[in-house]
């Protein structure tokens, strides 16, 4: 199946691609922590949004491509945080959790997109925390691809039935994707357990 691989952009020559993997991982963790702790004032979020755009431009990732990836998870976030609306001050909590998650996910995507898969897993293996982290990490990494595959297949099926997906169709597709990926994760877990994997 022909499709974009998440690390396609890792082979371009851009800013994030040049940063050493180890450094990048640490940077990512720091950025995520920052986003997590920044206070709930719109002003504080602007630099992070600008930073995202700077990363995009200097790492030569097309904005539209990036936007599409991010849109896939939009509905999940909406569902996840919509519950908070019913609380006191709910709308505010909702908006900021949403913004925080969106920025965090943008960073994760950016970093993953610009890192060669093999380089990343080599790096993780060297960490003293050892094998378990690298297992989970490798698993997550591959999971990105499978999700993407699944999404592309469904999109193609929709197009082949004469419907050009609009924004609201993307919501439908991602709902569907969620169910499929849940079922898949069950099967993958069975495959792991049958080969002796245990939750340590």
């Amino acid at each position: 199946m022909k499709h974009h691989f998440i690390d396609d952009f890792a082979y371009k020559k851009g800013f994030l691609q040049r940063v050493d993997t180890g450094l990048k991982v640490i940077l990512l963790i720091l950025l995520l922590l920052c986003v997590l702790v920044i206070p709930e004032k719109v002003l504080f979020y602007i630099p992070f949004i600008i930073l995202t755009f700077l990363f995009l431009i200097f790492s030569k990732i097309p904005f539209i491509y990036f936007l599409k990836r991010i849109l896939i998870i939009f509905p999940f976030l909406l569902v996840l945080f919509s519950l908070s609306i019913f609380k006191e001050n709910g709308l505010r909590i909702f908006l900021f959790s949403f913004l925080k998650s969106l920025i965090s996910i943008s960073f994760v995507f950016l970093f993953v997109m610009t890192t060669k898969m093999t380089a990343l897993s080599e790096f993780i293996k060297k960490l003293p925390a050892g094998f378990l982290i690298s297992d989970i990490f490798s698993f997550l990494y591959r999971y990105f691809f499978l999700l993407q595959d699944e999404f592309e297949k469904m999109k193609r099926a929709m197009i082949s039935k004469g419907k050009n997906p609009k924004l609201k169709d993307y919501a439908l597709l991602s709902g569907n994707l969620f169910i499929r990926s849940y079922e898949r994760s069950e099967r993958v877990l069975k495959a792991m357990i049958s080969r002796g994997w245990k939750i340590k």
């Binding site: 898969m117 897993s121 490798s138 698993f139 999971y143 495959a191 049958s194 994997w197």
Partner: peptide, 28 residues
């Protein structure tokens, strides 16, 4: 008894979850 049994899943993507072929075969 797990060690005595090998399960080939219908969809190989469910069984290949590591970044390199080596790691997948070494997993068990």
């Amino acid at each position: 008894l797990r060690k005595k049994m090998g399960f080939l899943f219908e969809n190989p993507d469910d069984a290949l979850f590591m970044p390199r072929v080596f790691d997948d075969i070494a997993f068990g």
